[in-house]
Nucleic acid binder design. Structure first.
Lengths: 339, 339
DNA sequence: ATGAAAGCGCTAACAT
DNA sequence: ATGTTAGCGCTTTCAT
C-alpha cells in the first residue's frame, strides 16, 4: 500500500548520503560535481527500484518553472480548435511539457480570469487565441518575460509572436471564385467581432466585390457557440433576402448551422444558393453537394505555434526574435459553388 | 513593472501583522479565529489594492490539494469527447477546479505515463475513458484514496464509479430496427477492442441477429485515429462484401470514414446500403440522406461524471457510495435506414 | 567529491 | 485575538 510518497530525503537516508547529492545526480549534474560513477549508479538503481518520482510541485515552487503550457482556445468542442489542440498537445508531451487548456468563448472577462489562474500555476508559456480587449493582460505577461504565442488572430497593438493565416486574401480569393462562377449577390455571414481574423475576412470579401462593382451583403451575428441562438437569425436572414445567390460562411461553426437552416428551408445548393465556408471539416466534405471550403492548414498552424513557443522556452536561445507567421489557406473548390 | 510577485509575507509586513493572520483571513477562517472585523477589512482591502494572489503551487505543496482535475479522453479531437470535455470543463471551473486534459489514443503505455504525471502534479481527481490493461494503475489510485470516475467504458475488475450508456441494448435495438426494415445482411464495422463498450455493442448486435436467425458479419479494424489507416480496410471490406445490405458503424469516427468510403465507391444510401452509426454528429445530421444515429446523451454524461467526481472531492460527504450510472441512448431514425 | 542549510510561499499546530 | 514556528519537497549556495 504505497500510502506515502517517497521524497528525496528517503532516498538519501537509505543510502546514507545527503539529499543534495541525490538532487545533483538526478538533475544530471553528477559530472559537473564530480560525483563518483559508482555512487551515481547506486542512486539511480535505488530510485528505479523504489519507483521514486520527484515531486514536481516542490520543484516548481523552488525553480519557478512548471513544465506546463497554458492553451486558451475559443471553444475546445470546435473541430478547428480541437484538432489544433491535439497536435499541440502531442508535440508538447514529446518535449516534456504538459498542457492545461481552456475555452474562452471569446469572453474577455473569463479570459482575464483564466490568464490569472495560469500565472498562478506558474505556467511556463501561453498559447492564446485572444478575444477582444485582452491587450493589457497579454502585455503584462510579456512585460514579465513570459512567452506568449497567439494564433488564429492577433492583437495589432501588442508586439508578440503569432501564427495566423492570410485571411484577407483567402476571403478575397473565395469571393472572386464565386464572382467568376457568375454569382452576383454574394452575402457574407459572420460574427460581429473586432478580432483581426474576422475583420480581415470581411475586408477581403468587400475588396473583391468592390473590384467587380458588386454590393456587399454583410450579416453579422452575435458570437455564440450555442447553435440554438444562431439558427434563428440565420433563418430570418435567408428568408428575407431571397435575392442572394451565394453565401460565404465566416467560420465552420456558422457554416454548420447555416447548412442546417438551408436544409430546413429546402433551399438547394448550388442552384438556389452557392455556398463557400471558412474552415474545412468532415461535414463539408461529406455534404451533398460537398461544400467549397477555405481550408486552414491546422497541422502547420499547430506545428508553428508549438515550435515557436518551445524555442522561446529554451533558455539557450536567449533572445529569439519575434515571429509573425502567416500561413496560406487552400480553397477547396467543391460542388456547392459551381454553376 | 510587476517583476516580483507579492507573497503573503509582504501583505503581513505592510500591515505589521503576522502572515498567519493574513492566511486565516484569506481562507475565510477569520470568524472561527475571532479576528476583528476591522482587521479583516484592512487586510482584504490591501489584498485587493495590490492585487495579491496566493501562490497556488505553494498552497498545493502544503495542503496536498491542487484544485486540478485530470481528464483523460481517447482523443480530444473526436467531437464526442471534445463536447464532453467542454461541458466538464465548464462545470469544473464553476466549482473552482481546473482541468488538465490529455488524449490516450487508447495507448496503455501512454496512459500509464499520463497517470504518473497527474499524480506527480497532485491532481485531486481523475476522469478517465480507460484503455485496456490499465486496471492496476486505476486500482493503485483507488488504493491511495484518489477519486476516479470512469466514463464511456468501465473496467469490470475495478470497483469504481463510472458513467456509461446501455451499449448492449443500444446496439441490439439499432440492429432490430434494421431487421424490422427488412435488411438481412447486416454488418457491424467496429474496432478490435476488449473495451467494455465495444464488447457490449458487438454483443447486442449479435443477440439481435441470433434472435432473427441471421448471420453476423463482423469486421474489426485496428484502432487508429488517423483516417488514412481506416479508409483502406473499409474500402476493401465493402468491395469484397457486396452482399451486405446494411451496416452499423461502431463509433462516429469509423462512421465518418465509412461515409467517405461509401461516397468514393458510389454506393448509394439506403438503396444499396442502409447505414446506422453509434454516436451522433453534425456530419450525420447534415448528410443526404441523414444518417440514423445511436445518439449518446453527452450533456448528461458530462454532468453525471463531474457531479460524481465533485461529490467525492467534497470532504463533507465522507463515504459517498460507489456509483455505476448507465444512461440511455436515443436511436435517431433518419433516412439512411429506411427501405 | 559531498554535505549543511537556507529558502521558494504557504498552512496549521501550538503558543501567548 | 494574533503571532511563532515547523514543515511540505525541492534546488542551490557555500563550506568542507
Amino acid at each position: 500500500m504505497p500510502q506515502k510518497r517517497l521524497s528525496i530525503v528517503d532516498i538519501a537516508n537509505q543510502l546514507n548520503i545527503s539529499k543534495t547529492t541525490v538532487s545533483f545526480i538526478l538533475n544530471g549534474r553528477a559530472q559537473e560535481k564530480r560525483i563518483s560513477a559508482e555512487l551515481v549508479e547506486r542512486v539511480l538503481k535505488l530510485v528505479k527500484e523504489v519507483g521514486y518520482k520527484p515531486n514536481s510541485l516542490a520543484k516548481s515552487l523552488r525553480t519557478g518553472k512548471s513544465n506546463i503550457i497554458g492553451l486558451m482556445v475559443e471553444d475546445i468542442s470546435n473541430p478547428f480548435f480541437s484538432s489544433i489542440a491535439r497536435l499541440i498537445e502531442d508535440r508538447a508531451y514529446e518535449n516534456g511539457y504538459k498542457i492545461i487548456y481552456c475555452s474562452t468563448y471569446n469572453n474577455t472577462e473569463k479570459t482575464k480570469d483564466l490568464i490569472g489562474m495560469f500565472r498562478d500555476r506558474h505556467v511556463d508559456g501561453y498559447i492564446i487565441a485572444p478575444p477582444e480587449g485582452i491587450e493589457d493582460d497579454v502585455s503584462d505577461l510579456l512585460k514579465d518575460n513570459l512567452p506568449v504565442v497567439l494564433f488564429d488572430r492577433y492583437l495589432p497593438l501588442v508586439d508578440t509572436d503569432y501564427i495566423i493565416v492570410n485571411n484577407l486574401f483567402s476571403a478575397y480569393n473565395a469571393t472572386q471564385h464565386l464572382i467568376g462562377q457568375g454569382y452576383k449577390n454574394i452575402a457574407l455571414l459572420t460574427f460581429f467581432s473586432n478580432q483581426s481574423q474576422m475583420q480581415d475576412r470581411a475586408k477581403g470579401y468587400k475588396m473583391a466585390l468592390k473590384e467587380n462593382n458588386l454590393k456587399p451583403i454583410l450579416k453579422e451575428l452575435t458570437f455564440n457557440q450555442n447553435p440554438k441562438y444562431l439558427v434563428e437569425p440565420i433563418t430570418s436572414f435567408l428568408r428575407k433576402r431571397k435575392d442572394i445567390d451565394a453565401i460565404i460562411f465566416g467560420t465552420n461553426h456558422i457554416g454548420t448551422c447555416g447548412l442546417k437552416v438551408i436544409n430546413n428551408l429546402g433551399i438547394s445548393i448550388p442552384s438556389d444558393l452557392a455556398v463557400v465556408s471558412f474552415d474545412d471539416s468532415d461535414v463539408y466534405e461529406l455534404h451533398s453537394p460537398p461544400i467549397t471550403a477555405i481550408s486552414q492548414p491546422t497541422e502547420e498552424i499547430a506545428n508553428n505555434v508549438i515550435t515557436t513557443l518551445l524555442s522561446k522556452l529554451n533558455p539557450a536561445a536567449e533572445n529569439v526574435k519575434t515571429h509573425a507567421i502567416t500561413l496560406h489557406t487552400e480553397l477547396a473548390i467543391r460542388g456547392s459553388s459551381k454553376k
